[in-house]
Design a protein around this nucleic acid. Sequence first.
DNA 1: CGCCACATGTAAGCCGTTACATGATTGT
DNA 2: ACAATCATGTAACGGCTTACATGTGGCG
Lengths: 207, 207
Amino acid sequence: MATVSALGYALLCALHRGPLTGYELVQRMRKPIGYYWTAQQSQIYPELARLSASGLIEHDAEAGPGPRQRKTHRLTAAGREALAAWLVEPPALRAFRDEAILKTYALAAADPDGMREFYLAEAETYQRRLDDFQAQHADLLSGHADDPLHPQFGAFATLELALAGTPPRIRWCRWMAERMTELARLRRESTPAEGSTPASRTSPPDG
Amino acid sequence: MATVSALGYALLCALHRGPLTGYELVQRMRKPIGYYWTAQQSQIYPELARLSASGLIEHDAEAGPGPRQRKTHRLTAAGREALAAWLVEPPALRAFRDEAILKTYALAAADPDGMREFYLAEAETYQRRLDDFQAQHADLLSGHADDPLHPQFGAFATLELALAGTPPRIRWCRWMAERMTELARLRRESTPAEGSTPASRTSPPDG
DNA sequence: CGCCACATGTAAGCCGTTACATGATTGT
DNA sequence: ACAATCATGTAACGGCTTACATGTGGCG
């Protein structure tokens, strides 16, 4: 039995609700699933071929718009089994990387005014993402996807997490932007002449 | 001017507060910075050599415990400049991957009882991490690292984010575990005989 | 006519993980 | 004796990103 990569399982996940073409999978790996799992088109097509060779997916082929056939992929019984077995396993949880947190760690080496702009831009990015999440959430709610029996309950649940996790991050970004303003002032006051105004410490974003 | 990889900048970040040996950098890339940026030892040593060749770091060498020299690396002026320039740039924010969310998306294909265990295990993992964060946070607070002028304010700020973001995630995991219990019951009721008890919908974790 | 969406693939090269290799010192 | 910690490196392999390649049909 050939071992399946994380990307392979991601594709099986994407196919769990019904058949899709490679092209549709590429789209899914950008936006809806894309916020928590991404893959390049050049990675997806070879992986589909591998999953097919392992017998976890199969496809119908019709004449496509270009020189090649259009293939609609779906899970086989073996694929559904492999997916079900993988889902309940604890995540391998490898390599989490967040560039913004890394930059925060080395903040002392940066220009406070530049970092203020950085955090404000971050806050805006996450705010736009949150708006997107809220729209999708409202859509699913209107279709009663908050019922665990609903086939889209999984998608609904991922949005619940996003809606719970994004606002604290936005608040933190704005709080950091304020701290950068304060830091710029403190450095101006203390570096040229020893200033006397003490730092007015405010509460962290989570109260 | 040679281009620097994300890992290269991560190492410059880790060195921003003072010189470290390769071995110490390996430790840093596990635990304290490790929760938001990781790197393998086999990746770090060659990258240090590359940064040295680019003139962004330099090192003193003494006799080490093993067959090779022990090298203590520090930023050069050029390194500090390159770091400062990179810090204020908006993150490239590539490939965010979260296996637990991916699995949630395909939840309908899984066994509810298995998934319940999955979410409870996740909640415990994050709870242990949160305890760790809180201990580090208390340590830094007792050293007044909440002052933006404090050299460790950056490290303090990363913990502020972790302390704001982790509890919602834990609540979500526990909420999902409850939904899985409910789902198992609903399926038992509706599959063999058409049950009549309607789903008792509870509020999502963020209220 | 140029651009975009549809649709599928390949190639080059870097990035990351796992495993191998060496060897002194300190603790059980 | 055995294991762990300190300390630095290399090799093999697979994953991922960027870019290239091909061709149709619809829109402005």
